[in-house]
Every structure is written in structure tokens, then in C-alpha cells.
């Protein structure tokens, strides 16, 4: 056989076996722990290392665990409200920085980017101090208002991400479209609503997805702002993990992974349909 059919061209690095091996190795490194975690949430053994048979009993325990369910509900509520607020604030911030020229713009730009780069731990302790000594958040409020401090903290680090995504999308907006709308009689607000918002819709979806996941995932900042009555899912899981590796934690983690995957697929589908429309 002297055919060269399977020889890769010089720049087809992905077709070299060494590169494929490397790629496979890295993906095993990234995924094997998660796969094992998911698989063993269905394992009928407390020791959780040898496969003993399929069971859903840990999921049953999960749903009977009231603390965990409350924490889960708290997390979803916080993520939902924080995402809504972040979308509004992030979009406004993006439009502000894209559209207007005003004194001190560079400083505003820097301040808006700050929450993205400040280490989580610093933001966490800042929020702790703020909500305990500067404006103490009353801790006897009814649900969901007792979550207010956490929601505020989450919005503070989520909306700059939304602003970033929306601004990237605005960068390729043809301003003449908006001028045409105004030429045809639209007011400032009408032009914003009818022309600009449809253009940035994909970015809004991406931003919403991003802030929802960021909020749902956050542990460090929440850890410093949550009280005994306002435990979120990651905080609850953290306290469980501290004790030991149990199938119940595996089950809880699997549910959160599933939620993340569903969110990503949903986001991708929405993205696709909104791109098709525009």
C-alpha cells in the first residue's frame, strides 16, 4: 500500500494522532470526574466506589430533604430576580457607553468593568461588611424579601457581564437603521424599542443565560451575604461536602449539572431562532 490517503496535510494538527491523544486525555481529565459523580448518584451503595446496582433512592432522599429543597428554591428565586434586574441594568449600561459621550466616560467604563475583575473574595467581604454594618439588611423579612441582600450582591457582579455581552453586539449595529426610524417619525423611545432591542436580542439571551448561571453557581459571594435563614443551594451543598462524600450530594450535584445543561441547550436554541429571525 503506497497510497497516502490517510496522511494529514502539514497544518491539519487535529488529524495527528499525538494531538488527538492529547485532546482525548484533556477531555477525560475534564469529564471523567463529573461522569463518575453522575454515575455514582445512581449507585446502590453507601461506600460509593464499587458499582452495586442502579437505584433512584438518593433522589428520593433529596426530595424529602426540606433544607435542601428550600435552598434550591432560594437559589432559583435569586437567580431569576437577579437576572431580570441585571438585564435591565446591563442593557442600560451598554447603551450608555455605546451611545453617549459625556465627561468621565472612561471612569464610568472602568467602574462598570470592575466587578468582573475584582476577586470574588474581596467582593464577598465587601458585601458582608456593607450589609452588616452600613445598611443592615433586616433578617426578619418574609420570603422572598429576606433574600434581598443576596440578590443585590448578585446583581452587582452579574450586570457588568450582561453589559459586556450587549455592548459587543451593539458594536456591529448600523446606526443608520436607528436614524432611519427617527427619520420616519419614531421617538427616541420608539426607536429604542423597535430597532435597537430586536438587534440586541441574541445578546440579551446570552446575557440572561450568563447571569442566571453565574448567580446559580456563585458560592463565595453568597457565602458572605447569606444568613442562617437564607441558605442557597451551593452554600447548602458546601456544608454537606465538608462532612463527607455521600451519594446524596452526588444526586444533588447531578441535578444542578442537569439544570446547567438544560439552560445551555435552551439558550442555544433561543439564540438560533432569534438569529434566524434577524
Amino acid at each position: 500500500m503506497r497510497t497516502a490517503k490517510d496522511r494529514p496535510a502539514p497544518l491539519e494538527y487535529n488529524r495527528r494522532w499525538s494531538m488527538r491523544l492529547w485532546l482525548t486525555g484533556v477531555f477525560i481529565f475534564l469529564y471523567a470526574p463529573l461522569m463518575a459523580l453522575v454515575a455514582f448518584s445512581f449507585n446502590d451503595s453507601k461506600r460509593n466506589i464499587v458499582w452495586k446496582g442502579f437505584t433512584l433512592k438518593y433522589y428520593g432522599q433529596l426530595f424529602r430533604n426540606d433544607d435542601l429543597m428550600i435552598a434550591f428554591a432560594n437559589s432559583l428565586t435569586i437567580a431569576f430576580v437577579a437576572t431580570l434586574l441585571s438585564l435591565v441594568l446591563g442593557t442600560l449600561a451598554a447603551v450608555l457607553l455605546w451611545r453617549f459621550r459625556f465627561p468621565g466616560k472612561a471612569a464610568v467604563e472602568g467602574a462598570m468593568a470592575l466587578p468582573i475583575v475584582v476577586p470574588e473574595i474581596c467582593m464577598g467581604v465587601a458585601m458582608l461588611v456593607f450589609f452588616s454594618s452600613v445598611v443592615p439588611w433586616p433578617n426578619n423579612l418574609v420570603w422572598p424579601f429576606n433574600l434581598g441582600a443576596i440578590i443585590i450582591a448578585h446583581v452587582s457582579f452579574c450586570f457588568p457581564f450582561v453589559a459586556m455581552v450587549v455592548r459587543a453586539r451593539l458594536a456591529n449595529f448600523n446606526k443608520e437603521q436607528e436614524e432611519a426610524a427617527k427619520d420616519l417619525g419614531a421617538s427616541e423611545w420608539q426607536a429604542f424599542r423597535d430597532i435597537l432591542i430586536p438587534h440586541i436580542r441574541p445578546a440579551l439571551i446570552a446575557g440572561a443565560l450568563l447571569s442566571f448561571t453565574l448567580s446559580l453557581d456563585d458560592f463565595v459571594i453568597t457565602f458572605f451575604t447569606s444568613g442562617p435563614n437564607t441558605v442557597t443551594f451551593p452554600v447548602k451543598v458546601y456544608s454537606m461536602v465538608r462532612f463527607s462524600v455521600t451519594p446524596e450530594v452526588n444526586a444533588a450535584s447531578t441535578m444542578l449539572i442537569l439544570l446547567t445543561v438544560v439552560l445551555m441547550v435552551l439558550g442555544a436554541l433561543m439564540q438560533k431562532s432569534s438569529q434566524r429571525r434577524s
Binding site: 503506497r2 497510497t3 497516502a4 496535510a9
Partner: peptide, 23 residues
């Protein structure tokens, strides 16, 4: 130039087979 690899056949440069010669 050796930047693509032929599926079949051979290329000779100055009488030398290029099959095993990289770009």
C-alpha cells in the same frame, strides 16, 4: 509545495518522489 497531501498518485520534483518529503 507539500501543503496538501495527494489522495492518490505521485509528484516528482527533479526526478525525486515527494511522497515522504515534508513541505
Amino acid at each position: 509545495a507539500g501543503l496538501e497531501v495527494p489522495t492518490e498518485g505521485e509528484i516528482l520534483i527533479d526526478g525525486q518522489d515527494m511522497r515522504t518529503i515534508p513541505a
